[in-house]
Amino acid sequence: MRIRQSIACAIAALAAALAPAAHAQLGGWEPTKTVEFIVPAGTGGGADQMARLIDAIIKKNNLMKQPMVVVNKGGGAGAEGFLDIKNAKGDPHKIIITLSNLFTTPLATGVPFNWKDLTPVAMLALDQFILWVPADTPYKTAKEYIDAVKAAGPGKFKMGGTGSKQEDEIITVALEKQTGTKFTYIPYKGGGEVATQLVGKHVDSTVNNPIEAVSQWRAGQLRPLCVFDDQRLVYRGKVTETMAWSDIPTCKEAGVDIDYLMLRGIFMAPGVTEAQRNYYVALLKKVRETPEWKDFMEKGAFNQTALIGDDYRAWLQKEEQRHYQLMKEAGFLAPGK
């Protein structure tokens, strides 16, 4: 009896939640069924967190009549998700969030897809990279740390990162080239795991995204040395008792001229109509205007550059070239690329 009641309860509650909410019509086209939001990575990572947040914001503010589901397709360094949307030609009920594997996976594995196979919708933000060390190590600046790495000799210091031949390893190689050092790069499965391994001192440093390590920073377990960008972060609110994001120097100030930002953007399947694309552009614009989004941006110290249309395409074009160059220099290209 009790079970039946609680099932009834659940059903009633669900029905209430799923009832379509009244909202303004957004241009000419609207989804007519559940929208699949693909994450080309596993659960718990940066892209997954952002996708789930967007999903939650849309639901909370009733921005879309049809429901949305977040689906993780992280197999083959994201190739699973990208191939899925590439093959869904003309399907307006699928969108995908990207990370750098949009560029790196086809280059490193030779799996046949390219951003030009998809329909670019909007860039939501850019994710930063920061050089982190455990808080109880003596290195206060990036320079001190790099000097220590140099003094120890090649391969003695361990750099932890997410995945192999992806953004973390690309930055590590760029860092090595700039400073003439040599790290031992250890690939892990996800950003959260990397930060924890650094706290446990199983590696000496990482290049975690801010959102992945902020909690350990606030707990006094990790220390940021420099941010891989040509200008400092803009967030001035105190994160720890003494420091704000904006207090972290750029790596350039420390004499290491590397800037690397990771795309957090949305794409659709190829062959969708202009009206369909515009629907999602408008939807994402609304998402970015919510306080929840702004709060998330600040917590994760994101670069809030947002592009659409031709600007977005131009940016993608440039970034693809850059990744090709970076990966070629690092020797990460698949045979025949």
Binding site: G42, T43, G44, L53, G192, T196, V199, S215, Q216
Partner: peptide, 28 residues
Amino acid sequence: TLGVPGSPTAAVLLGGLLIWGLQPGPML
């Protein structure tokens, strides 16, 4: 305490925490 999910379902719960503005990790 660490912000590292020990199972896939824990990973989704982790997503839940973030949406309510709670940051999993040592400070929680």
